[in-house]
Design a protein around this nucleic acid. Structure first.
Lengths: 170, 170
DNA sequence: TGGTTTGGTCTGTTCATCGAACCAAATGCA
DNA sequence: TGCATTTGGTTCGATGAACAGACCAAACCA
């Protein structure tokens, strides 16, 4: 972890977290992994990020135990339990960002499978449970702009998709 | 907002959020504001950040409606409701970072005033309510290192303190 | 009113990211 | 099986962000 992203003089859990997930692109990489993206090229094409930065970020996430490389050769990247614990952060940032920039018209919605939509506290509006991400389905919301991107991941995410399930791109 | 921190090609609430709070130091500034720090020099001394960066971050937070300059001359910085909505993110990052780097010995704990300690879901372990930050008291935890810093803010935070209340530094 | 403190602003240096080029390794197919 | 293609990097120069120090304007207070 480079010195330019650390906070050695902050005795604080937030600083410890930001040292790992605070760098540019990292949380968006994790977002994509929650959405089921598994392959380097899919991540790269969906994020439009330089391959050098993506490679460096993935290495760090693997080294710190947030991602796991599965399989030899063209590996698949999967979230660990530690990373999955960050889901509420991502959900809240998604909702907060949508509320500020597209009030009442979220770009993406999240649903407790077979139940209700998730509210601001991450709980199902129907049963009040805060479901595990694997029991969450994500859908394109009314505020989404389907014309902005057409990479394979963006196209696949036009359909509802269960979090943590591998996203199949053509 | 500079181009190097934006994600114009991401149609995503998380990207919108990160465009505002994803820059280095921003979330720590907001953390300090939750802890009741109000003045430029206290922020600067507690964060050990260059004054140019702090000034730039504060300007952006004010411009985007997350902070409010109160008073003329030597202004005071106060969180807006929009910013206060980010409290669960900060709480979760604090807990996640502490759990990973100091398991069982958090550097800082948060308590529902007159009730119980807050758990991982931000709810009071006694009454199960997720209290508003103004009803939360923060205390130094068993994992804190009181020798790391001795700026006025760090010294003041050795005592329990209510979130959002102005932190008085000598 | 003058000295001190606070809150900036400016600038050269260092580090991170970007974008393109190059290449090694893996995959797929005839 | 060998070759073409794809995938997953690595390298490098240009650009932008952060840092550290110096300077200074504005505010405060005795």
């Amino acid at each position: 972890m480079a010195l330019g992203t650390d906070y050695p003089r902050q005795d604080c859990g937030i600083a410890r977290s930001l040292e790992l997930v605070g760098e540019r692109w990292t949380l968006l990489i994790l977002r994509d992994c929650f959405l089921g993206v598994r392959r380097f090229s899919d991540l790269q094409a969906h994020l439009d990020v330089s391959r050098a930065v993506l490679s460096s970020r993935l290495d760090a996430l693997v080294a710190e135990g947030l991602l796991e490389r599965v399989g030899d050769g063209h590996a698949s990247y999967e979230l660990t339990e530690d990373a999955i614990a960050l889901w509420p952060v991502l959900l809240l940032l998604a909702q907060w960002g949508d509320q500020r920039t597209s009030p009442g018209r979220p770009r993406r919605t999240f649903h407790h499978v077979g139940c209700g939509i998730l509210g601001r506290d991450g709980r199902c509006s129907t049963c009040d449970v805060a479901p595990h991400p694997r029991d969450v389905e994500t859908r394109r919301g009314p505020g989404a702009d389907p014309t902005l991107r057409s990479d394979p991941v963006s196209r696949a995410l036009r359909e509802p998709h269960r979090l943590l399930e591998p996203l199949v791109t053509a």
